[in-house]
Design a protein around this nucleic acid. Sequence first.
DNA 1: CTCCGGTGTG
DNA 2: CACACCGGAG
Length: 312
Amino acid sequence: MKNITLVQKELLTWYNKHGRHELPWRKTDDIYHIYLSEIMLQQTQVNRVRDEYYPQFLAKFPTLASLAETPLDDVLAAWSGLGYYSRARNLHKTAQLSQKSLPKTFKELLALPGIGQYTASAICSFGYEQNVPVVDTNIARVLKRYFALLHVKDKTVWEYAQKLLNHKEPRNHNLALMDLGSMVCLPKNPKCAECPLQANCQGKEEAELYTQKKKKEYESLELFYGILVQDDKIALTPARGNMYKNMLELPSVEPIEEDYLGSFKHAYTKYRLHVKLYKIYTCTEVVWVSIDELHKAPVSSLTKKALSTVLY
DNA sequence: CTCCGGTGTG
DNA sequence: CACACCGGAG
């Protein structure tokens, strides 16, 4: 590739002018804050993390040590509604495994639960300012288009990221690629006219060739949950399956027509859930949760949605 | 109803 | 390497 230094420079110039410098986890050098932001940002939109979960979570658990000594229930309660709850379980586990602070090497970080190749690199680059490449989906899309990498393995994309890496300013370089991917080099309808790399971009003519192609086949499921309220408390029960492990949910019931209360839809991954709610009169393995304190309970959005259809 | 996105497991 | 895992925004 030619003019690599020039490309790096144009990228940084664009970043200085258009980058998302105001994101709270970019204005701190607290490695715990940076780590937390990366875990939350896995599979989750920036705005929700920035405006809601990140500030609230840090207010509740200001240090890695405070997180480590908190019961898992409370961590899951703070994560409630954010989804992908294994992230919260792994976060808690990693806090307990880390003595005082997170390790400083890529290899040690990668060994911790919930930290894969991307997150280990991101912590090394954004937190420790180490001279390492970072590749998330946004950066991968930028690199694939720019270098016209069709049908390549992830390993190849990482090699291009390494080749393009700006060793003078690796952190800002990586952040620049990331912002370019999420603001300009969009999966659909990329804004090539605004792109600082457009002149030498090898993929701009057929930009859609480099985006993920996913096949979707949905599976419909009908679920029945029981509602039991006594003294302003709702009957919940420990979640059975692996998905909402360590959380609370409504008890599953057999549908009885005369006890029908209402229904709603919910969706995740390939599943399309049709949920029906029924009055019940007893509940085994019950955990009573005060309706006023539901926000302190480890429950999913599915459970919250169910409760909001029958309470108030 | 479609889109978007890392890690862990088998 | 395929698949499970979430939820809100558009």
